[in-house]
Amino acid sequence: MLNYVWLGLVVIGILTAAGRDLYDSIENVYGNERSFPVHIEEQTGPGEWNAWCTANELQRKFSGIENTEDTTRFVLSFARQSSTAGVLRPESGAPAILLTVQESFGDNGSIPCRITSDSSRTGLVYVSFSPIRFVYLKRVTNAALDAAALAVKIALGLIGIMALWLGVMKVAEEAGIIAIIARAVRPITTRLFSDIPEDHPAIGAMIMNISANMLGLGNAATPFGLKAMEELDKLNKHAGTATNAMVTFLALNTSCVTLVPATAIAVRAATGSSDPAIIIGTTFLTSLVATVFAVVFAKVFQRLSVFRVREKEAS
């Protein structure tokens, strides 16, 4: 299932991007080859000017439509590099399409342009951009590369927290605390995880993970959770394939009953809510219902033949 969903994300993503780029170039959404006037004002440095253009001029450039009356001004800065080449830089408040153009020319925020006609004496310079193509495909490429780098950053960031909590966990294990926790919740866990031996260390780690999640302590929850997965994997007869207990645990984890939705409350406070913590009640009830359903789904799906452990994959 994950296999096809993942493939779907990638294929649909790339095809959508290609399709939109094709549409944009057929419709000439970026008005390639069309020039537009830039109004020059005072000089700010050698070869540099403050400038502006109007909404209707931009619309004529990008959509080819002539008859609009909107003369809202957008502030730009303009620099001439030679008699035929210059650089435009939109200032704050620029329309979305100009920002997209800016983005398609890279990170430094300036748009290289050709000067097609220059009547500096009247304060008008006509410019056109070099053809803009493949906006979405470029975005997809950048997003993919950035995501790969981000994934490594996240994983490496986990090392410290993991080392700390796995260390503390080890003390708890040797002192017998984990076993005590496991014994305390035995009535529940024997029903939820019928294929795990009672008092198995996995149970203690799972309980720690779920408790940490309830309190909104995401940082501490992950190490406990991964420890629990390791312990569950020791009982796995088919390496590389999920066991029923693993899926049930993940179902509990992702829909986890939440007492303190820490992140959501923080964002609410930051956006000026009169009572940021008002969502504690709804969050608790929602997650409670979701958790019950998650366990039921996990238990029902594990019996379906589609999700059966395939013997040939076992090693």
């Binding site: 994997d233 590389g240 359903f293 998650a294 996990a298 799906f301 452990v309």
Partner: peptide
């Protein structure tokens, strides 16, 4: 834990 075949984990999670 190097599990590649996640079986019913995704449908369970998404339905939840």
């Amino acid at each position: 834990v190097n599990v590649r075949n996640t079986r019913h984990a995704l449908p369970t999670g998404l339905l939840a």
